[in-house]
Design a binder for these strands. Structure first.
Length: 331
DNA sequence: TCTCCTCGAGATCT
DNA sequence: CTCGAGGAGA
């Protein structure tokens, strides 16, 4: 909580700036022209910490066409932890301009219609938004693309999704990282690799973008995987496969793959996925339900329904994830 | 089958 | 914060 303290002793809670209601949207896009941005700061909290470096590079049609990089002299000393992390010392910034001057230069570099890219770029946007408003009376409202979100969706087998890890995954040098300009270049290289990853996974950019934008008109997430969204491009199937023409329904979270991937395997075998358990259901595949608090006795509604049908003599089997994989592989 | 809603897990930037 | 689940009700 921050306070405004007046000379007559009055004080009041500082205006809630955390709304940032003119801020641009986080979008998923692959624009032909954009500005890659990275800042260095004295800490992680935009309310209490200061920007000490702003860097940006403008890319058009995969070419760097303009650059911006300036150090800033903060009002407070730079903590040794930050100097150790970034290599930026108090001495390096002693003749640098204040944030007000630098942000005004930056606002001349960036154009209102530019799309900003960066890694976890919401962090940078928040600092820039607050300083643009307080120092230049300007609302920074550019939409932005977070390369982290793209990486999270596309890269599954790394231990985490830090920029360092994604760079290593693609063999991109991390030399000179934690300085603005170099981080822009590293992020740009990762972005290029991630974009080409779509081809490797034979996915169109439009489909990839769609997978993020499954929001209903009121803005709520409706990210449910629906049976009708899972189609097979295969035309011939092995009719002797144990799952052929069987109806499979999933409940709970699978441990070894996403439900969507599992459903894709099912339809690629010529089987049918169901959204809910019915008399036509043949297999109910049991994922992990532990984390679902609303579930009583560890059983989802699909399980209870299936058990009811089994008691009534229907041909339904409730199977574990592992048994499901055995069935998939034809065993 | 669609809309609206709730919940838990797991992060990233300096 | 974002994302991936499940559920009630129409």
């Amino acid at each position: 909580m921050q306070w405004n303290v007046y000379s007559d002793g009055r004080c009041e809670v500082k205006q809630n700036t955390s709304q940032r209601d003119k801020k641009g949207k986080s979008i998923i896009a692959f624009p032909d022209e954009f500005v890659m941005v990275d800042i260095e700061t004295t800490g992680c909290d935009a309310r209490y910490n200061e920007i000490i470096e702003i860097s940006a590079i403008r890319i058009k049609d995969d070419q760097v066409i303009d650059r911006f990089s300036m150090l800033i002299r903060p009002w407070n000393d730079i903590d040794p932890f930050i100097t150790n992390l970034t290599g930026i010392t108090n001495q390096m910034v002693q003749d640098a301009p204040r944030v007000g001057e630098v942000i005004k230069h930056f606002l001349r570099f960036i154009r209102p219609e530019d799309i900003i890219l960066g890694y976890n770029v919401n962090f940078d946007i928040n600092f820039l938004y607050d300083n643009a408003l307080s120092e230049a009376d300007y609302y920074l409202n550019n939409d932005f693309v977070d390369v982290l979100r793209i990486a999270r969706k596309l890269i599954k087998n790394t231990e985490n999704d830090k920029l360092k890890t994604i760079a290593a995954f693609y063999g991109i040098s991390y030399e000179g990282a934690h300085r603005g300009e170099q981080d822009c270049i590293i992020c740009l290289e990762c972005y290029r690799q991630l974009r080409s990853e779509l081809d490797k996974q034979s996915m169109s950019e439009a489909d990839f973008i769609d997978s993020f934008n499954k929001r209903s008109s009121n803005g709520y997430f409706t990210n449910q995987i629906r049976v009708k969204d899972i189609v097979s491009d295969k035309t011939a199937f092995d009719e002797n496969h144990p799952l052929f023409s069987k109806v499979c329904v999933f409940t709970g979270a699978l441990e070894k793959m996403s439900r969507k991937d599992a459903m894709q395997m099912v339809v690629d075998l010529g089987s049918i996925c169901g959204d809910q358990v019915t008399r036509k259901t043949n297999y109910l595949v049991l994922g992990n339900l532990d984390y679902v608090k609303s579930i009583e006795e560890g059983k989802s509604s699909k399980m209870k329904k299936a058990e009811g049908y089994i008691l009534a003599g229907q041909d339904i089997e409730i199977i574990s994830e592992n048994v499901f994989y055995e069935l998939i592989s034809g065993g």
